[in-house]
Amino acid sequence: MDGTGILDEALERLHRTGPERLGRLSNHAPMAVEALAAHGQAGGVHRWLDRYSAKLEEFPSGTAPVTAADWREALGDRRRLADWIAFFGREVAERPWRDVLGQWWPRLLPGMYGGSTHPVIRVGHAVRTLLGGVETAPRLGELAHGLGYWAARHRPVTGLGVLPVGADTADGANSADTAHTALDAVPPLAERTGGFPDRLARVTAVPVWADDVRDPHVARQRLAELVRAATHRYATHGHGEETMLVHAATAPNAVLRTLPALPATLWLPSLRAAWVASAAVTAMYAPDAPVPWSPPGGIAPQEIVRLALVHGDEHVIKLTDTAMDVGDERAMAAALRCVELSEPLS
């Protein structure tokens, strides 16, 4: 992890800005600068922030403090963004951050689909910095900002049906054998118009996958399998929507990164929520047909990170970060495909 202090400087700079702009678009800068610092590019963080600054808005005004008595009423109310961030700021100042995360993860997990999954992704980046062993005030503050954003944008998905695919299971249901086949079995939406909330409302069923998992450690393995499959799939399907399909991989990876900080009892529901997120994004933005993927040739992984920084698009940086976690040739090809498909940051 970054030992230069640059990441902390960047987070302090960003905590004066809001988690969104235009009332609907996420501030990706905290996630991107953490990813850059994690892969040896801290020296370029402030210059990148200068380029991104036009996409930042001032921190919003508060309404009323969120309390233990009324938090349920405030959950999912985006007008309470500042109130929720202040609440979690107090929480992480007064208690160990792992205790705060363990208490609130099961409360927030059912609503990880709000904000186009960006809140949970922001939390995953924050947790990675803290698991690195350096618990500075800016890094604890970043966890508070991520959790507060998640609480304000909390949006559950309920009533999903299951699609019968793959092999029969012992209980008579049908499931896909692997994450790759499960994602392949996700049917595209018939009507692929509108933004993320509109499309999400049209997702009514996803294939059964990993419902038979009972061992938390197997759940962690399956989640890693899902991240790999979704990252690989971007190499052949990213042209369906070069920006939004990134989240089919980065959302479950955020959950995977958080598991070591959570009690093992929370790993099973975490796998299931992450699967629904990845499958839903796949349904919402899948192209009509895949294209062949091209191996990255002799380009080293660290050179791909540098290319992502030069390109500048925040989603390119975040998918490259996830591809580095996966670490194989097709993951690197997915990162390069994202560079090719995406508009550079001006």
Rank of each mutant, 00 (worst) to 15 (best):
S270P: 01
T243G: 12
A261R: 01
A251L: 08
H237V: 05
A254T: 01
Q221Y: 10
R214S: 14
T236Q: 12
L268A: 04
A249T: 05
L256C: 03
T231I: 11
M244Y: 14
W209H: 05
Q221D: 13
H237S: 03
V218G: 03
V213F: 10
R228K: 14
A210K: 06
V246C: 15
V218I: 12
R257Y: 10
R214P: 03
T236K: 07
A219L: 07
A261V: 05
P252K: 01
P269H: 10
H239Y: 10
A264E: 15
D215I: 07
H247I: 04
V208R: 02
L262P: 06
V218P: 00
A264T: 15
T258N: 03
R272A: 14
D211M: 11
D211Y: 07
H247W: 09
A235Q: 06
H239D: 13
A210R: 01
R233S: 15
L268R: 09
R222E: 14
M244F: 13
W209E: 03
L271M: 14
P263F: 09
P260Q: 13
V246T: 15
T231N: 05
P216S: 14
R233C: 05
T236E: 15
H247K: 06
W267R: 02
L256W: 00
A230W: 00
R214T: 14
D211V: 05
L223F: 07
E225Y: 08
V213S: 07
L226T: 00
A251D: 03
V255T: 14
L245F: 08
E241Q: 14
A205W: 09
V208T: 13
A235N: 01
P252C: 09
T265C: 11
A251M: 08
E225L: 11
R214H: 12
R272I: 03
D211N: 13
H217E: 14
L271P: 01
A274K: 01
A264N: 05
T243I: 15
A254Q: 00
S270T: 10
T265N: 13
N253A: 15
H237C: 13
D215Y: 06
L266W: 02
L226F: 09
R228I: 06
V255D: 06
H237E: 12
A274F: 06
R257P: 07
R233V: 03
L223P: 00
R222H: 15
S270V: 05
V206P: 00
A235F: 02
G238N: 04
L266T: 06
A210P: 02
T243C: 12
T265I: 10
P260N: 10
Y234L: 09
G240Q: 02
A229I: 08
H217M: 13
T231S: 09
L268Y: 04
H217Q: 11
P216Y: 08
T231F: 09
V213D: 07
Q221N: 10
D215L: 10
R222T: 04
R214K: 13
A249C: 12
T265L: 11
E225Q: 15
V246Q: 10
R222D: 05
D211I: 00
D215Q: 09
A219N: 03
A230Q: 02
P252A: 11
L266G: 06
S270H: 01
N253S: 15
R214Y: 00
A261I: 06
V208L: 00
T258L: 03
V255H: 09
P263A: 12
L262C: 08
A254G: 08
A235S: 15
T236S: 14
R228G: 05
L226A: 08
T236N: 10
G240N: 02
R220G: 15
A219E: 06
P263C: 12
P263H: 12
